[in-house]
Computed example of a mutant assay.
Amino acid sequence: MHRVGLTGGIAAGKSTVAARLRRLGAAVIDHDVLAREVVAPGSSGLEAVAEAFGQEVVTVLGELDRAALGAQVFADPMARERLNAIVHPLVTEAAREREAAAVADGSTVVVHDIPLLVETGQAGHFDELVVVDAPPELRVQRLVASRGLTETQAWDRLAAQADDEARIAVADVVLDGSGAVSELEDQVDALWAVWADRHPAGSAR
């Protein structure tokens, strides 16, 4: 089984890479999805977040108010560290369970899609680390266009992550996400072909 860590700066193209790998046959474990699941209504994770950041981060329906929480953590590194200390261990355990299930189902290439892979010290936990990279200015443009953020908010989102040099320094493979989607998918296809040569059974699930 080939374990891959996939990461990249926000709006660099990581989601495109993950989607392509899934279509090619990889088992993709989305840690963003797991991060939402571990703070679902009624969960111990949500209870811990509310205790740390106040009941104002929980809606009247008992759900996590992501906007309220984001207002506290995106511009405050210490608050972000407190949040990570609560959520990341829960996500790690959930990811371990998903990986075991994928392997039991016959998957031979398992990709962990982790936005904060470098920030959480997981760079050495995989057989191969793939980083999707794109210029910061382009990523800000994408965030403003696709998510309705102001430029200031977009730059704050970038600042909340590891800098590009830190990600690239630990990468085994760097994919260029600055071009068209089709260009990025071509790079993924080429990488998949390399994996298939190394792990012949990995070309299909």
Score class of each variant (00 low, 15 high):
42 G>D: 07
77 P>Q: 03
56 E>K: 02
14 K>W: 00
1 M>C: 10
1 M>P: 12
145 A>W: 04
131 V>S: 00
4 V>W: 03
75 A>Q: 12
78 M>T: 13
113 D>N: 06
46 L>V: 10
27 A>R: 03
192 W>R: 08
34 L>T: 00
101 A>I: 06
96 R>H: 13
153 Q>V: 12
10 I>M: 08
8 G>D: 03
77 P>L: 07
21 L>K: 01
129 L>T: 10
184 L>Y: 02
44 S>W: 02
29 I>A: 02
138 L>W: 08
200 P>V: 02
88 H>P: 06
176 D>G: 11
43 S>I: 07
185 E>H: 05
119 E>H: 07
85 A>Q: 09
147 R>W: 09
29 I>N: 01
202 G>I: 09
154 A>F: 13
162 A>K: 15
3 R>E: 13
148 G>L: 13
76 D>A: 03
63 E>P: 05
158 L>G: 14
72 Q>I: 15
77 P>D: 06
112 H>W: 01
156 D>C: 14
205 R>V: 11
86 I>E: 10
129 L>Q: 06
149 L>P: 02
5 G>H: 00
71 A>H: 14
125 H>V: 03
202 G>V: 09
139 R>M: 09
205 R>W: 13
71 A>Y: 11
35 A>R: 03
174 V>C: 06
92 T>L: 14
101 A>N: 09
73 V>W: 01
153 Q>H: 14
188 V>G: 01
12 A>D: 01
160 A>N: 13
168 I>D: 12
7 T>Y: 04
30 D>M: 05
139 R>I: 10
56 E>H: 04
102 A>T: 03
74 F>P: 12
159 A>T: 14
187 Q>Y: 06
23 R>Y: 00
6 L>H: 04
18 A>G: 03
64 L>C: 08
205 R>A: 15
12 A>T: 04
176 D>W: 11
53 F>L: 03
88 H>L: 09
203 S>F: 02
157 R>T: 09
127 D>H: 13
77 P>R: 11
108 T>F: 00
98 R>H: 15
61 L>G: 10
95 A>S: 14
45 G>P: 06
196 A>T: 11
51 E>C: 02
123 A>Y: 04
97 E>M: 10
70 G>E: 12
1 M>G: 06
124 G>T: 08
135 P>G: 06
90 L>R: 14
137 E>P: 09
115 P>R: 05
196 A>K: 04
72 Q>H: 13
144 V>D: 13
17 V>L: 03
95 A>R: 12
67 A>W: 03
35 A>S: 10
174 V>D: 07
11 A>C: 06
177 G>L: 10
179 G>D: 08
13 G>K: 02
98 R>K: 14
181 V>C: 04
100 A>Q: 12
151 E>Q: 14
70 G>T: 13
172 D>K: 09
127 D>R: 08
116 L>Q: 04
127 D>T: 04
104 A>C: 08
189 D>V: 11
35 A>Y: 00
142 R>Y: 10
